[in-house]
Write a protein that binds this DNA or RNA. Structure first.
Length: 682
DNA sequence: CCGTTTTCGGTTTTT
DNA sequence: CCGAAAACGG
């Protein structure tokens, strides 16, 4: 078979990785070294040369973006069908397995997924129902505690308080939360992972099936895996499965959300017969930029060690600008951008904290340069969208307390906090859902006439919606809910710009429903693939397929939670890109401005113990730049109301002087010359 | 129930 | 200092 199309575009190391023997393979892939190419070509290689069938492969990523990218690149590369090839995020794949095996996973068939916002609301209710002071047991803290434990694969029952009163109380809350979720049939993000791990661990026949099926496990950004993800991979690989993981220990910047860089070492210990391949040739940046990056990251003690190199020329020096103030910094950056004649979306302004974006935004606005800030509110997280989704959830599942609470008085229909308190009381006492409690409360006449009347009206509204929507295709269901729920009328009343936007977003949601083409799940015959033992009898497959009313709607809701989508709206071309360093990971730009390089801000004061991770973050920032890299720091900066002076970041000292060119001496432009900005010392 | 006042926190974030 | 969210008063 002629596989030159697969191998010719690769360098020696990439080829070595793509054609590696069937051992567990670790690919240390530096920034810009072609790791996605490596992964996609490896998949093609396995299919073409190792007689793998598409359903033998499982490729896992962290973000939907990465998963989509991988899928489209594979489709472009291969001429054969990739039916049965699973590519997805850890959460997406876990979710898929839970939908198939909902019964074995001890979940209701129509289980719902909680996003972080819904989780927080749920926790607020749990803390309140335990009569705890939410100042001491702040739902946010509790949320963090629980998620951190779940990331470690620990349930409340797995943790021993051992005389620690604080921990004991936390565990009580954790227990109560688990119970609430189970009772109401909801699953948070971390739970997807824990559940699916337990599902396979506790069902040997299921495990056997998937171990036989997924002979080849490919993992992107392996340095970002957390404990439960690693345990799951470990379990799924079994003794036969072959791992192919791509990682860069120097780009591990997510320990704060549970990523365990040690998983690389764990993998090498837990799996014998591993091989490590390094991709160090960089196809992105100039020699100078790489030299700066290499010098910086060399200061980290704990790393496997690698040195990026390029065939490219040295290029321009790294420019350094010392500003007086954050305003000066922004004006400098904007000034440079004005002098840039390339495409504007090839320019990125990167910073450590989101708060820093404001000054740049103002400066860009003032000069009329179009820009786009990443990480602003995502489409499916908008208030009005979440309200609509809550109605839809309620239609699917009347006992969804979260959805009930959200819409019971949205739009305002005279059901205030007092009324809902009564419902909550009855619900808790009789351990039923709010929906059922509402019926009980009305029947037993526990409310004043007016409240009772309003509540009855609400219940009838939902029942009416259920009837109206029955048998309609998804987009029309959404349309009906949009009108009948009263949300449109609700927003129309306010004649503000904001209200107009909300209405547009609601319309956009109907649009999204119209265009919604669920993918994945196409193959229901997964138990009949050749060479794989059938799924054990008693596995109850997901029967709410497409075409069914509940099925379409449910898939749409799943999609909304799991793939909340970027800011929506046209990804307006020709905009300067503003984002945090974390958001920039995986991207590249012709020109990069790395701003706010000051002690306390970057490295951030809260990260004194995590200095190496801060340095990696800086490394990520530097290696985003293809051609021009500007580093900025400011002598002073407004923080928490007062102007504070800041020393240049230690990271600047770690970049060799000969690579750096200072753009302008601080003294050459005194602060009072800045027009249209606040004086430095006010 | 709704608009105003007060209080609080303020690193990074995908799913 | 600034914005969000909780508490308060009409």
């Amino acid at each position: 078979m002629d596989v030159s199309y697969l191998l010719d575009p690769l360098n020696n190391e990439q080829r070595e990785a793509v054609t590696a023997p069937l051992k567990h393979t670790l690919v240390l892939a530096g920034a810009g070294s072609g790791k996605t190419k490596c992964l996609t070509h490896r998949i093609a290689w396995l299919l073409e040369m190792e007689h793998a069938r598409p359903y033998n492969l499982l490729a896992v990523t962290f973000t939907n973006k990465a998963a989509n990218e991988m899928r489209s690149r594979i489709d472009a590369l291969l001429n054969q069908s990739t039916r049965g090839l699973w590519i997805g995020t850890f959460h997406g794949i876990a979710h898929r397995l839970l939908r198939i095996h909902w019964s074995d996973a001890n979940l209701p068939q129509l289980f719902q997924i909680l996003d972080s916002d819904d989780q927080l609301r749920t926790l607020r209710r749990v803390v309140k129902s335990l009569q705890l002071d939410d100042k001491v047991w702040s739902p946010k803290k509790v949320q963090h505690f629980i998620n951190a434990r779940k990331d470690e694969g620990l349930r409340a029952a797995d943790i021993v308080a051992d005389g620690d009163a604080w921990l004991a109380q936390m565990l009580v809350i954790y227990h109560a939360y688990e119970e609430t979720c189970q009772r109401t049939g909801v699953v948070d993000f971390a739970e997807l992972l824990v559940r699916v791990y337990e599902l396979l661990r506790d069902n040997p026949l299921l495990l056997e099936h998937y171990q036989q099926r997924f002979r080849y496990l490919l993992v992107d950004e392996f340095q970002d895996t957390n404990t439960i993800q690693y345990q799951w991979l470990h379990l799924l690989a079994g003794s036969q499965g072959k791992l192919f993981v791509v990682f860069d220990d120097d780009q591990s910047v997510y320990s704060f959300r549970g990523a365990r860089i040690e998983n690389i070492q764990n993998l090498r210990q837990d799996f014998t017969d591993t091989c490590l391949i390094r991709l160090e040739q960089n196809y992105r940046s100039t020699g100078t930029i790489l030299a700066a990056a290499n010098a910086l990251i060399a200061n980290n003690k704990s790393r496997l060690g690698k040195k990026l190199w390029t065939q490219d020329k040295a290029g321009e020096p790294v420019f350094l600008y010392a500003a007086y103030s954050e305003t000066d910094e922004a004006l400098f950056v904007v000034d440079k951008i004005k002098g840039w004649y390339g495409k504007r979306n090839e320019v990125a302004i990167l910073y450590r904290t989101t708060a820093q974006s404001r000054v740049f935004e103002e400066a860009l606005l003032q000069k009329g340069i179009p820009y786009r800030i990443y990480g602003s509110l995502r489409f499916y997280e908008r208030l009005e969208i979440k309200d609509m989704l809550a109605y839809l959830r309620l239609l699917l599942h009347r006992d969804d307390d979260g959805a009930f609470e959200r819409v019971v008085n949205t739009p305002k229909r005279g059901i205030g906090g007092r009324t809902v308190d009564v419902l909550r009381g009855v619900a808790r006492q009789q351990s039923v859902s709010l929906w059922k409690a509402a019926h009980i409360v009305i029947e037993t006449q526990q409310l004043k006439a007016r409240a009772s009347h309003s509540l009855t009206a609400f219940l009838n509204l939902i029942k009416q919606l259920v009837e109206q929507v029955k048998g309609l295709p998804l987009p029309e269901q959404v349309e009906v809910v949009k009108i009948t729920s009263g949300l449109v009328a609700h927003y129309k009343k306010e004649n503000k710009e904001e209200a107009q936007r909300r209405l547009e977003n609601l319309e956009e949601l109907v649009n999204a429903a119209r265009q919604f083409k669920p993918r994945g799940f196409q193959e229901q015959g997964i138990d009949a693939v050749a060479g794989v033992p059938p799924l054990p009898k008693g596995s109850i497959l997901d029967s709410t397929g497409f075409g069914t009313i509940a099925g379409d709607l449910r898939h749409f809701l799943d999609h909304a939670v799991l793939e909340a989508g970027e800011g929506q709206g046209a990804p307006s071309e020709d905009c300067v890109q503003l984002m945090t360093l974390h958001a920039a990971k995986g991207l590249e730009f012709q020109v990069v401005f790395l701003c706010g390089l000051e002690e306390g801000l970057f490295p951030h004061q809260n990260c004194v113990g995590e200095l190496e991770e801060e340095r990696r973050l800086c490394y990520v920032g530097i290696t985003r730049a293809r051609q021009y890299l500007y580093l900025c720091h400011s002598e002073s900066r407004y923080r928490y109301g007062t102007r504070e002076s800041g020393k240049p970041s230690r990271f600047l000292d770690e970049i060799p002087d000969e690579l750096i060119q200072k753009v302008r001496l601080s003294s050459s432009v005194p602060p009072f010359k800045l027009s249209g900005t606040k004086p430095v010392d006010d």
